[in-house]
Amino acid sequence: MKERSVRGLIIVGFAVAVLVVAGLGFAYKMSEFAVTIMKDEIEGFGAVAISIYLVGMVPILFFTLWAIATGRFRDIEHPKYRLLELDDEIERGGGVSYRVGATVAGGRGAR
């Protein structure tokens, strides 16, 4: 059990570190971006790169919200065990055959 709590601590630590450090960088860049856009100077050129980033990031934001909303993170450690189960199932089932149109067993509800 001790190892579990250490693991939890490390994960939370990383989550916080990523959020804080990267969030600071993010906030910094966005505020500079806003300032530059308002200033009517040649420096607005660099805003192009950030604009691309900003727009490219929006789908990712949607993905995160969607993933949280649909409960993708509810049983967060499940897929890593499933990976090994799947490998066993596939190897046992004659290796590499797949029946077209067949419903695959062991899918939903495997958790």
Partner: peptide, 29 residues
């Protein structure tokens, strides 16, 4: 994990890595 026949240490941590990459990697060109 398949080579070691052992699940990865923490799936949650790997997902933190994923979302971190998604948000912050594109900023640094």
């Amino acid at each position: 994990p398949l080579l070691l026949r052992k699940p990865i240490w923490s799936h949650a941590l790997s997902l933190i890595g994923f979302w971190g990459l998604a948000f912050f990697y594109p900023m640094q060109g």
